[in-house]
């Protein structure tokens, strides 16, 4: 289960609409919980694949180091990543799996159809190492909304102090 606030969920979908017809990408910060991951912040990143941004993304490691530093300062962890698939289903491609290396983290994909965000799915990168890694679709929820077709209501209770 990947838990989002409505604002964070809307933000990554908006990012995909803004970069259309190119793929957007970014980092999900938050906490690992017993039944998944809880998003507490999202960070937009640049797509360095300027040679083929309509069907490829890559985040510069220098940018990730900056994000990781910011996360540490806020007491947050990198718990996943997001990107968009312009005019393409919200399912991981063979390239998405081949180039995914953060086992135990969530990879969120938003299909953007004709510039409008459509379905958003999340996939946990399971396995123990490169040789047996695989994606497992996970529920995306939070607030009082089910964010994907397979989601089961799971209310993310936010305390008044955040």
């Amino acid at each position: 289960m990947l838990a989002f606030s409505q604002a964070d969920y809307d933000e990554i979908r908006k990012h995909g609409e803004e970069t259309y017809p190119h793929e957007c990408c970014g980092v999900l910060l938050g906490q690992f919980s017993e039944d998944g991951r809880i998003v507490e912040a999202t960070v937009r990143c640049g797509n360095t694949r300027t040679d083929s941004p309509q069907n490829r993304y890559h985040i510069a490691p220098q940018e990730l180091i900056r994000v990781q530093r910011q996360a540490r300062e806020k007491g947050l962890e990198i718990i996943g990543f997001y990107h968009s698939h312009p005019d393409h289903p919200a399912q991981p491609s063979a390239t998405d799996l081949a180039e995914a290396h953060w086992i135990g983290c969530s990879y969120v994909i938003t299909a953007v159809q004709q510039g409008k965000a459509a379905l958003t799915n999340s996939f946990l990168l399971g396995g123990t190492q490169e040789e047996d890694k695989h994606f497992e679709q996970e529920q995306v929820g939070g607030g009082e909304t089910n964010f994907n077709e397979t989601a089961v209501v799971n209310i993310l209770k936010k305390t008044a102090d955040g």
């Binding site: 083929s52 069907n55 491609s93 390239t95 998405d96």
Partner: peptide, 13 residues
């Protein structure tokens, strides 16, 4: 020293 696995992918197989 930071160890950072790469982050990449894309819709094309």
């Amino acid at each position: 020293l930071s160890i950072i696995p790469s982050i990449a992918g894309g819709k094309r197989n």
